[in-house]
Design a protein around this nucleic acid. Structure first.
Length: 593
RNA sequence: GGGGGCGUGGUGAAGCCUGGAGUUCACGCCGGCCUGUCAAGCCGGAGGUCGCGGGUUCAAAUCCCGUCGUCCCCGCCA
């Protein structure tokens, strides 16, 4: 009725204190139990579920209620009869005796059950995402996302940070990830790029005296999908002037601690632990170690100094290493162990040596006969191997052995659960990473300050960057750096990175110019919000914490994006599709017709 | 670009390895019964081009090839 409220109470908030009062609640039929002479309906709204009880003698339409009908219900809150309370429900001590109800909106039979117990195909969930949102787990994800954003915003506002919006239609700077492009109508043939991050704009804010900036920023990278990668994703982006590593890290810690408190109700112990890049690679074989479990990599090269075993001797002679892990009591069969060898080869190893510790402390292995007793004894000692333990050894260049063992370590030891939260700073990243063919490629964007410019110029493979990553349970949560604020250093760094002066001018000239107007030293960071939430909530994919994600082929099954556009739209943009593309579209039409 | 898993009434699963009538289970849907359930119960019913195409075979959901979709991984993601 006009003027009357559509509801007076939220269903999930009704308690014993409300017994005897008249309320109007509104929501969806989560479940109906029709006993003929009495009809129970679990009415769900955003706050929870309340059992309503309808007498079909007076309200015969109660028999026609179906799943997910949207209702408004008037009634009196009453105590449930003794013995019928439901301790599994927050509102299980009470129920609503219905006086009248109105079907505000009926529902077609559902494509899937609104129930977390059914593991519904994700494609169907995405196609009907609005129904998926009615599931408790999605409600939890949306609430957690909002709570985390709010908590981090508050933490930064309290520290005097200014939220500034940066543009999402920007110039393309094709380096690193592929840019998402948007054609310009007013300048035909030209394209905007969607930002991979607000990087240069936030640095301009530092030049502009903003001092402390943050933004919950949507970022875009047109690369292939993974469980933790989408075309568009969200970062808590921040930057500060007259700031260095310590200041950035302390603030980022406060922000993730606020998010963790908001989502999990857990206090992080600060400061978070730190490990250098070199140590992470040596002990865990990765720059984003999962330190929730041990199984650390040991270098046992010295054990095989002068060994008769050609497999190891060969690797050591050319400057390689012998490293391994004690994978513990795997209990694998011969074929299971061989499967590990296959796995190692797939990720780049030339081979893998396995050894199983026998009850008498000796090592059983296909290569045991090539090794001396002292070598075998030394291995048992170094890996503290006890009966049943499986040792896995790789002899190769350190740049191969470490990641291979790191991969095996994760696949064999990574915990299933998400109860533990192992945050970790990885610091002292190198300026350059070595590629498979021995070349050097920059490990960071070209605005990252090297610790020593001279080293970067003269001994690039040894140069350390003022860059740091935040890692959680083996996932890279974000990265940051101290930026270059000296235009001469920036020019030199471009040069060392192989970007010519002309190229630097044409791509970044506007930025280089800004650096010439009294740029303060500054530093910053960006935290991947999707990944943080997925881990805090124990979800396998960031798709579960993104309201409307896309499939691996970049499609939104709900709205069918990306979609074809009309000839008229293309003409306005001055765009013509290549003939082979046009032909493939015709084929697609024929296939669907 | 490459490797792998999956695709069976609206949903989830079993069946596939070892070929023999679209068979089974749970939920949902339709009809009926039922006054205290809470994954209500009981009775009855409808609903499927086993993703699609080709091959092998007397016979294919099942075996083989291709293809599409989806998911995981490698490459890629400064």
């Amino acid at each position: 009725m006009a003027g009357e409220p559509l509801r007076t109470r939220m269903a999930g908030t009704i308690t014993e204190d409300d017994i005897g009062t008249s309320v109007r609640v509104a929501g969806w039929v989560a479940k109906r139990r029709d006993h003929g002479g009495v009809v129970f309906v679990d009415l769900r709204d955003a706050s929870g579920v309340l059992q309503i009880v309808v007498d079909p003698e007076t309200l015969p339409d109660a028999h026609h209620l179906r799943m997910e009908f949207c209702l408004s219900v008037d009634g009196e809150v009453r105590r449930r009869p003794a013995g019928t309370e439901n301790s599994d429900m927050a509102t299980g001590a009470v129920e609503l005796g219905v006086e009248t109800f109105v079907v505000l909106s009926p529902a077609d039979p559902l494509p899937f059950m609104i129930d977390d117990r059914a593991d519904v195909d994700e494609l169907i969930r995405l196609e009907y995402r609005y129904l998926d949102f009615r599931r408790a787990s999605m409600q939890e994800a949306l609430r957690a996302r909002s709570a985390a954003s709010h908590a981090m915003r508050t933490a930064l506002q309290d520290r005097g940070f200014l939220e500034v919006e940066t543009p999402t239609l920007i110039a393309s700077t094709p380096e690193g990830a592929r840019d998402m492009l948007v054609p310009s109508r007013l300048r035909k043939g030209a394209f905007y790029a969607l930002p991979q991050s607000p990087q240069l704009f936030k640095q301009l804010l530092m030049v502009g005296g903003v001092d402390r900036y943050y933004q919950i920023a949507r970022c875009y990278r047109d690369e292939d999908f993974r469980a933790d990668r989408q075309l568009e994703f969200t970062q808590l982006d921040l930057e500060g002037a007259f700031w260095d590593e310590a200041g950035v890290q302390e603030t980022v810690e406060a922000a993730v601690a606020a998010a963790t408190r908001a989502v999990r109700g857990v206090e992080l112990s600060l400061p978070l632990p730190r490990i250098t890049y070199a140590e992470a690679m040596a002990r865990y074989g990765t720059d984003k170690p999962d330190v929730r479990f041990g199984m650390e990599i040991e270098d046992v090269s010295d054990v095989f100094d002068g060994t008769a075993f050609k497999g190891f001797a060969g690797a050591l002679e050319i400057g390689g290493v012998v490293r391994g892990i004690n994978a513990g009591p795997l209990g694998l069969s011969r074929s299971g162990l061989d499967g590990l060898v296959t796995q190692a080869v797939e990720v780049g190893a030339k081979g893998l040596v396995w050894m199983v510790t026998e009850d008498d402390g000796s090592l059983r292995s296909p290569v045991a006969k090539f090794l001396s007793d002292s070598e075998l004894d030394a291995l048992v000692d170094r890996f503290s191997a006890t009966a049943g333990d499986t040792l896995l050894l790789v002899a190769d260049d350190a740049t191969v052995a470490a990641p291979v063992l790191g991969h095996l370590r994760l696949s064999l030891g990574r915990p299933d659960g998400h109860d533990d939260l192992a945050f970790l700073w990885v610091v002292d990243f190198p300026v350059f990473e070595e590629t498979d063919d021995g070349g050097l490629v920059p490990a960071h964007h070209p605005f990252t300050q090297p610790v020593e410019l001279d080293t970067m110029v003269n001994r690039p493979s040894e140069a350390i960057a003022r860059a740091y990553d935040l890692v959680l349970n083996g996932s890279e949560l974000g990265s940051g750096s101290v930026r270059i604020h000296d235009p001469d250093m920036q020019a030199k760094v471009f040069e060392v990175l192989g970007i010519s002066a002309n190229e630097a001018e044409s791509r970044f000239g506007w930025f280089m110019r800004a650096l010439r107007y009294g740029t303060p030293p500054h530093a910053g960071f960006a935290i991947g919000l999707d990944r943080l939430l997925a881990i805090l909530l124990g979800r396998a994919s960031i798709r579960d914490v993104i309201p409307f994600p896309k499939t691996q082929r970049g499609i939104d099954p709900l709205t069918s994006s990306p979609s074809l556009v009309t000839e008229e739209q293309l003409r306005e943009l001055g765009i013509d599709l290549r003939p082979e593309v046009r032909a493939s579209l015709v084929e697609e039409d024929d296939a669907t017709a």
